[in-house]
Each structure stands twice: as structure tokens, then as C-alpha cells.
Simulated scan of single mutants.
Amino acid sequence: MRYLAAGVALVLLATPGLAQSIGEKTGVKSTLGITPTTADFVKLAAITDMFEIQSGELAQERGNAAEKRFAETMISDHKKTSDELKAMASGGDVKVEVPTVLDSVHQSKLAKLKSLSGADFSSRYVIHQVSGHKDAVSLFERYAKGGDHPKLKDWAGKTLPVLRHHVEMAQELAAGQTVGKR
């Protein structure tokens, strides 16, 4: 087992670009509080925005009244941050490619949501909103504290209050769902 751990560490050290992406993708960096690379930050921020917009559109079709109101805010706020991120990249401020499609993890989550309706949809949607926004807060906090691109670092810090508010809103939505169910 010790040899396996040493071998994995050696591979990760030998390929730092790969190690950073794997670490961010698996949540290791988040758990350890390690700052994401600029490329990882941009990729995850863009994918998070796309997921929030697409799942929000689905919630506006299938959700209850509270979920529809919540989704309207998510769509509006995440379109704004998505546009800001794209503007920084297209303006040459951030020299990282912004993804235009969801990664496989978020595609799978969206596909599952599309297969659900009623209470099953509501439950899964709210779970994704709480956990996804907590992950986004962690990502933005870590980049705002230690990111290596000054303009992007500043943007991450300015975006944090909105994301923290989204966590609160999602938690309130979740609390409202559980009232009377116990």
C-alpha cells in the first residue's frame, strides 16, 4: 500500500498540470483548501454557471412555485457571471479557454433531473442547488485568496457575496421542503 501511495504521488508530481485538474475534479484541492489553477477555476466557474442556467430552466418547467422563483434568480445571476467571465476571456484579460458545454458529471446530473418530475424532481433539484453552491463558494473563496491572475482574483472576490446568498437561498428552499414531512 505504501508503494502504491508513493507511486501515485510520483505520477502526480511528474505531471503537475494533470495533478491540478485531477485534484480539483476529485475535490482533493477543495478539502485541503488549495488554490485552483486559473485554468481549473475558469473551467469550473463556467461549468457551474451553465449547469445553474440549464437546471434553472428545467426547474421553471417542472418545479413548484418556490423553485421557479429561485430558478429565475439563479438563471439571471449565473447568466451575468457567465457573461462577465466570457468577456474577460474574449477581451484577452484571461488567457484560458472558457468551456461551452457541461462536463460529464454535470451532464449526468442534468440528465437525471430531466428524468424526474414532481417531488422527486424537487428533492434532487434542491440537493444539487445546496451542494453545488457550497462547492462554488469554496472554489471562489480559494481563488479569491490565492489565485494568480489579479483581475480574475478580484472578480472571484466580488462574486462571492452573491454565491453565499445563493447558498442561503438554496438552504431556505430545502428547509421549506422538509417542513411537515417528518
Rank of each mutant, 00 (worst) to 15 (best):
M1K: 09
R2Q: 12
Y3S: 13
L4R: 03
L4C: 01
A5W: 03
A6D: 09
A9R: 10
A9S: 06
V11I: 15
V11G: 02
T15N: 14
G17N: 08
G17M: 06
L18S: 13
I22D: 00
G23N: 01
G23W: 05
T26R: 09
V28G: 06
K29T: 02
S30C: 10
T31F: 14
T31N: 08
T31V: 06
L32R: 05
I34S: 02
I34Q: 02
P36N: 05
T37P: 00
D40Y: 01
D40S: 15
K43Y: 05
L44A: 09
L44I: 09
A45Y: 05
T48F: 07
D49I: 04
Q54W: 14
S55L: 11
A59K: 06
Q60Y: 12
N64T: 14
A65H: 15
E67R: 06
E67N: 08
R69W: 10
A71F: 11
T73N: 15
M74N: 11
I75N: 14
I75V: 15
I75F: 11
T81R: 05
S82Q: 15
S82P: 08
S82D: 14
D83E: 15
D83F: 10
E84M: 13
L85V: 12
M88I: 10
M88T: 10
A89L: 12
S90L: 08
S90D: 15
G91I: 11
V94H: 00
V94A: 02
K95Q: 08
V96W: 02
V96M: 01
V96S: 05
E97T: 13
V98F: 04
V98Q: 04
H106E: 01
H106N: 00
Q107I: 01
K109N: 09
L110Q: 00
L110S: 03
L113V: 00
S115P: 00
S117F: 03
A119Q: 13
D120H: 03
F121L: 04
S122H: 02
S122D: 04
R124M: 05
Y125H: 01
Y125C: 01
V126T: 09
V126S: 00
V126W: 00
V126E: 03
H128E: 12
Q129V: 01
V130K: 02
G132T: 00
D135R: 11
A136I: 06
A136M: 08
V137G: 01
L139D: 05
F140N: 03
R142D: 11
R142L: 13
Y143P: 07
A144N: 06
K145N: 12
G146Q: 13
G147A: 14
G147S: 10
K151I: 10
L152A: 04
K153M: 08
D154Y: 12
W155D: 05
G157C: 11
K158W: 04
T159W: 06
L160W: 07
P161E: 00
P161F: 01
L163G: 02
V167I: 06
E168H: 13
E168N: 14
E168W: 04
Q171C: 01
E172Y: 00
E172S: 13
A175T: 12
T178M: 14
V179C: 02
G180Y: 00
G180M: 08
